[in-house]
Amino acid sequence: MAAARDPRPVGDKLVTVFGGSGFIGRHVVRALARDGWRIRVAVRRPDLAGHLQPLGGVGQIVTTQANLRYPESVAQAARGSDAVVNLVGILSESGKQSFEAVQAEGASIAAEAAKEAGAARFVQMSAIGADRASKAQYGKTKAAGEDAVLAVYPDAVIIRPSIVFGPEDDFFNRFAAMARMSPVLPLIGGGRTRFQPVFVGDVARVVAMAAAGEIAGGAGAYELGGPEVMTFEEVLRFVLKETGRDRALVPLPFGLAKLQAKVLQLLPNAPLTVDQVTMLETDNVVSEDAKAAGRTLEGLGIEPASAAEVAPTYLWRFRKSGQFEKTRTEA
């Protein structure tokens, strides 16, 4: 886990963070605030970003309206910035918020705006699994976004985390919520897909280092993973243990899961899409190339926090009696 730093005095350097009000965004904003940046958070709905204000000093964090599908708003948000961070991404498409528009074209628009504004550094949040040859639109457009950014900023820092966890995550929390409601949990693809869950605070620390120019950019993304590699089945069993639930784990072949997802993705706030099932066909772990190049948390001198260390601090709320109920291993 990244070592805690004493907050630095607020300086005159300005960083614009696109997508700074989301799960990863709030932790990035906190890390940047502690480093003394003036922070402009560019979001579609500034009226819903008030929760960011306590993360910094008075006047240190301001919000502004911007949408990556509208270049004029992006250019206005980037104006005067010394560094720009793009965290915008989606896990499923909805209306005009398509993978292509948000993750590929949007990244290009953000980079062009940053360059026009004279920003010295650009940081692009991508993901392990970003690949032009990916069968999943998520991974394919993440890779297209990386290419678009590097075409404008050859020395941009590209960050690819594995599954990110933390108190507000949509990973451990999602499965814990499912276990609370359903007697059965599906092991998609037999539960063999491997993940390397990484703590959101560690990811935020790397983003802040990149914005400050403390790590090199250019060719080769930084791949961030935690200390544990867990299969999908191990993830579910971990969640069940921590929440004190007994649930049946039923294998669900990828083909059947895709048929089910075709129906589910028609629902508002779809719980599962075909694209998400497709992503589960590939392991989500740090590559050997990234390890060899030192483009990992350990390579940056950060000891990654483990899921076993952090996740229990927020999964207790899914226990039948909350924090006062012991898990099976504690009894």
Results as ranks from 00 to 15, higher is better:
77 A>G: 11
179 A>E: 06
56 G>S: 05
315 L>F: 05
199 F>T: 04
141 T>E: 12
198 V>L: 04
3 A>E: 14
119 A>Q: 08
245 R>V: 00
212 A>Y: 11
322 G>V: 00
210 A>L: 11
203 V>G: 09
110 A>V: 05
328 R>A: 15
109 I>N: 10
130 A>T: 06
184 V>A: 01
64 T>Q: 07
40 R>S: 09
1 M>K: 13
72 E>Q: 15
50 G>W: 13
318 F>I: 03
52 L>F: 06
31 A>N: 07
251 P>V: 05
55 L>I: 12
247 R>V: 09
117 A>D: 04
263 V>I: 15
283 D>N: 15
52 L>K: 04
73 S>F: 00
222 Y>H: 03
270 A>Q: 13
168 E>N: 05
139 G>Q: 01
60 Q>I: 08
69 R>A: 14
331 A>V: 13
24 I>W: 00
145 G>R: 04
260 Q>C: 09
13 K>V: 00
283 D>A: 03
239 V>E: 03
150 L>N: 00
222 Y>D: 02
97 Q>S: 15
46 P>I: 10
249 L>Y: 10
94 S>M: 11
154 P>E: 03
172 F>E: 01
24 I>M: 13
327 T>D: 10
24 I>C: 12
122 F>G: 11
259 L>A: 14
232 F>A: 01
168 E>K: 12
85 V>W: 05
182 S>Y: 10
315 L>Y: 09
238 F>G: 03
268 P>D: 10
317 R>G: 05
191 G>F: 10
159 I>K: 07
107 A>I: 10
108 S>H: 13
88 V>Y: 07
125 M>G: 03
261 A>D: 03
253 P>S: 03
247 R>S: 07
128 I>P: 02
151 A>V: 00
110 A>P: 01
8 R>T: 02
222 Y>N: 02
320 K>G: 00
274 V>M: 07
175 F>M: 13
231 T>A: 06
128 I>M: 14
262 K>S: 15
170 D>F: 10
187 L>V: 07
37 W>Q: 01
244 G>Q: 10
128 I>R: 02
122 F>M: 15
218 G>M: 07
242 E>V: 02
163 I>W: 02
92 S>M: 14
288 E>Y: 00
242 E>Q: 15
143 A>D: 12
138 Y>P: 05
95 G>V: 13
152 V>R: 13
161 P>A: 06
220 G>L: 05
300 L>P: 11
265 Q>A: 11
296 T>K: 00
35 D>T: 09
239 V>A: 09
169 D>M: 02
327 T>H: 09
224 L>P: 05
240 L>N: 02
53 Q>S: 11
219 A>F: 04
191 G>L: 02
176 A>L: 09
250 V>N: 03
63 T>H: 01
48 L>K: 15
40 R>I: 09
63 T>G: 03
34 R>Q: 14
299 G>A: 07
206 V>E: 07
184 V>N: 10
169 D>P: 00
66 A>E: 07
50 G>T: 08
295 R>T: 04
10 V>W: 03
83 A>N: 14
53 Q>V: 14
67 N>I: 00
35 D>R: 15
9 P>E: 10
129 G>H: 11
234 E>I: 02
184 V>C: 05
215 I>Q: 04
46 P>A: 13
123 V>C: 07
265 Q>T: 14
102 V>Q: 06
311 A>F: 06
327 T>C: 10
313 T>I: 07
160 R>N: 13
301 G>K: 08
10 V>F: 04
118 G>K: 08
91 L>S: 13
164 V>H: 01
271 P>C: 10
